[in-house]
Design a protein around this nucleic acid. Sequence first.
RNA 1: GAGGGUGUAGCUCAGUCGGUAGAGCACCGGCCUUUUAAGCCGGUUGCCGAGGGUUCGAUUCCCUCCGCCCUCACCA
Length: 532
Amino acid sequence: MSDNILKEIDPRNQRAVRIAKMEKLRAEGIDPYPPRPGEGRVSIASVRRDWDKLKQQVDNEHKIVKSGGIVRLAGRITAIRTHGKSVFFTIADGTGTFQLYIRKNSVEENMPDDPAAFERVKELDIGDFITSEGELFTTRTGEATQLVHKWAIICKTLLPLPEKYHGLTDPDLRLRQRYLDLMANPDVKSNFLKRALIIRTIREYLQNEGYVELETPVLTPLYGGATARPFKTHHNTLNIDLYMRIATELYLKRLIVGGFERVFEMGKVFRNEGVDRDHNPEFTLLELYEAYADYNRMMELAEGIVIASARAVGRFVEEETESPHIVDSGDKGILLDFEGDRISIIPPFRRIAFIDAIKDASGIDITTSDRADLISFFEREDIEYDTEAPYWPLVDKLFSETVEPKLIEPTFVVDYPVALSPLAKRKPDNPDLTERFELFILEREIANAFTELNDPIDQRKRMENQIEQRKRGDKGAPDIIDEDFLTALEHGMPPTGGMGIGIGRLVTILCGVHALKDVIPFPLLKPLESGK
RNA sequence: GAGGGUGUAGCUCAGUCGGUAGAGCACCGGCCUUUUAAGCCGGUUGCCGAGGGUUCGAUUCCCUCCGCCCUCACCA
């Protein structure tokens, strides 16, 4: 660096140094942020794909591709190795990384109008974007490389990127500056690609089944369709309070009433609750409803959706990445290795009844037990529980504690008690149970589905029951009845099967990660205040 | 919310049994035309998370607070 501008800069301030370099470029008449710089460029992946063809043109004596093997690349500099009158760069575009070799004589021959072209190469920083044009060859050590004839800067970067060897490891920074995480940790990007792939696969799957995708309101005067506390907001000109939806259920059912027979929506819902490994306050929920269907049909669909997603991820892994997580993805399904657990995602999934599952796991028969039985079990097993809670929430707790941890392989838990299922139809042979199932994989609840309750009188009773629970202190229960929904039901909803699938949780399983935040690009974080 | 851990250079981390700090990478200068965690020579890093206390003296000990991580609890 021989320029006066740079001598006055505190070298500790890397940003100031880079700004000075940028201003120097401007002073020399070079735009550090030019428009349309990438004309005629090819992707790094395509160069690698065509490498064999390009190799045909290699002159074995000089190890250099003859003319015709000239390509134009564009990307971000991720590493620099200078050698005096030559420099090696590693650049990355969206498809991969590639090595550039810039030699003094080469650029001077090919850029005769720009005598400083090589000196300026040495002022490039890691993070800058450049285009390079030149011939392909293989280095002594066997790496595919471009010998650069011409180059140009297309974006000067002002802040340094994460350290090249250790990368970015601070878990908080990884989330707050996700763009750095994406550059430093390739798995992150591949997980997001898998997420996109799963979402696309599910859409295609449902569309092939004749489903129509519709959007229902996010801002609603009432909230319902799930048990959760909502976010509240306000519309200014109407001067009304509104809630962010906690589920799409009640609106999608209105569409079934109106005559749609197969509808789904895949979108964000918002629940004003805690944040942990399996919960984010906003998350993507798939809900689907099918007229003239029941929960057996929903099990079929659940299997179909999970298998299709697993296969898509399996193909992606084979084509694009290495992943020891996916052991085998054949025609039948897929075999996952999840921290030593071998999980085969192959239909038909196992089915167990809710009551039997609890009996097997705890010895308690919930059809004959009472609250005191549950409490003595919790005391005996040293399980903490809500001492205020009534019977059915404690049953739910018992299930979570004793059954869920055993649900590793895909398992349908079927026939839930009516008290835990306010929107599901009762079983004809046992009105205390409902035609409902939840699908569990790796201890996580993936899907919740039932034969929908379409008896408007029963539905009203159950909603009134929930209001009672609310009065008894269950803050998740709704505090007002959605009369508009009940009116819709009174106009007649055909027998219908419906299902909800938490997309994020499904993605975590198929990506082999534990936490939802690993598959959400920007999970909710507390804003930074003081300290850092 | 409870318990445990942690916070030192731009990044990853070491260290000070109390005397205001180091390494590698990055950065700056020099050498180097097939390197790839390039190499060699030289150089700059820092309110040692914030506030308070003890002390002649605190980055180190004590207290409070803040952030992050782990375990548990809460949360269809």
